[in-house]
């Protein structure tokens, strides 16, 4: 696939009819088992993530995992099943903004059902009822993210008393995420003190805290977008079909329907997506409108508790 096929089209969300297949896995999307490329470089990434998941599970009794239904947190979920030998012994939290693409919700419910997940859905109902949303509503784009995602997450954490939350963010996504720790403390009000982060060396993480500290744990920090797709191919991990090309466009990063658009792409299988990524120079989150608002828009969102 030529690299030119990755131009973004902000503001033109893909209209897509419901086109669900039976079962979770569309086998034809993946490399055949007997012709799998050499993916052995993923072993180290996998082992490291499993180690972190197990540390988190050992250190926190009231732990949850954030599952956004996207490719990264779907890989995270898969890694949890690897770490815990087929089980997912912690609740999976989905912060539903009510603006997610409908196919994501259908996919979520099918996976949760088949894998026997303890699914916890959080929603900032007050903001939705008050209409402080974007673009239909009174809020700006960034405010909408703050209300529906950050506050929605905060609410579900408070309601369930979660001490720590596991998230699927990666360093290569964006500059402030590149500076994250695997175990990242946040204040009670979720603030991230990125100017004074704990040292992290030799896989010894910060696991002692003042009461009231909340923790974010990031087992995928060292993966790249390309690694995620290689791993999806190797492990044949089910993901929502929104990522695959449909009439010349596909989603590269999934968010809320009004603020996420597709990229031009004809990649309809995982190996084609991998090939496309190897040849692109376009940033992954370029289709996520909230990142583009101002130079430090994303930094401010994250410092105040956004994922």
């Amino acid at each position: 696939m030529a690299s030119g096929a990755m131009e973004t089209e902000i503001g033109r969300p893909i209209e897509r009819h419901k086109r669900l297949v039976d079962g979770l896995l569309e086998g034809a999307r993946y490399s055949p088992r007997d012709a799998m490329p050499d993916y052995s470089h993923l072993d180290e990434l996998e082992n490291q993530s499993i180690f972190i998941l197990r540390e988190a599970f050992n250190k926190f009794s009231n732990l949850a995992m954030l599952w956004s239904i996207g490719k990264d947190s779907s890989v995270l979920l898969w890694l949890a099943r690897k770490a815990f030998f087929g089980h997912v012994p912690i609740p999976c939290v989905h912060v539903d903004t009510n603006y997610k693409i409908p196919e994501m919700i259908a996919f979520r419910d099918r996976v949760a059902d088949q894998w026997g997940l303890d699914l916890v859905v959080g929603q900032n109902k007050a903001a939705l009822e008050a209409g402080t949303t974007f673009p239909q509503g009174t809020a700006s784009r960034i405010e909408c993210c703050t209300f529906l995602k950050r506050d929605g997450l905060q609410q579900v954490i408070e309601d369930n008393n979660f001490e720590a939350v596991i998230l699927g963010i990666r360093r290569d996504e964006e500059g402030t995420r590149a500076k994250e720790r695997y175990f990242s403390p946040r204040t009670k009000t979720f603030e991230w003190n990125f100017r004074d982060q704990p040292p992290e060396l030799w896989d010894q993480f910060k696991t002692d805290f003042e009461p009231g500290t909340h923790l974010r744990i990031h087992p995928l920090l060292h993966w790249t977008e390309l690694n995620i797709w290689e791993y999806i191919d190797r492990e044949q991990i089910p993901i929502t079909s929104l990522y695959f090309g449909d009439e010349g466009t596909r989603y590269r990063s999934l968010g809320c329907a009004p603020c996420t658009s597709g990229v031009q792409s004809n990649a309809v299988t995982v190996p084609e997506i991998i090939e496309e990524l190897r040849n692109t120079n376009v940033a992954e989150r370029s289709t996520r409108a909230q990142d583009q608002e101002a130079e430090d828009a994303f930094e401010r969102l994250r410092a105040s508790g956004y994922m």
Binding site: R171, D172, E174, G175, T176, A178, K179, F194, R195, Q197, H222, T224, E295, D296, E299
Partner: peptide, 21 residues
């Protein structure tokens, strides 16, 4: 390119470690 934090660019120093591929 690496100094992603606003404070880093304003003071032109690197505050925290960063990784890039």
């Amino acid at each position: 390119l690496m100094d992603a934090l606003q404070a880093e660019r304003d003071q032109n120093i690197t505050i925290d470690t960063s990784q890039i591929w």
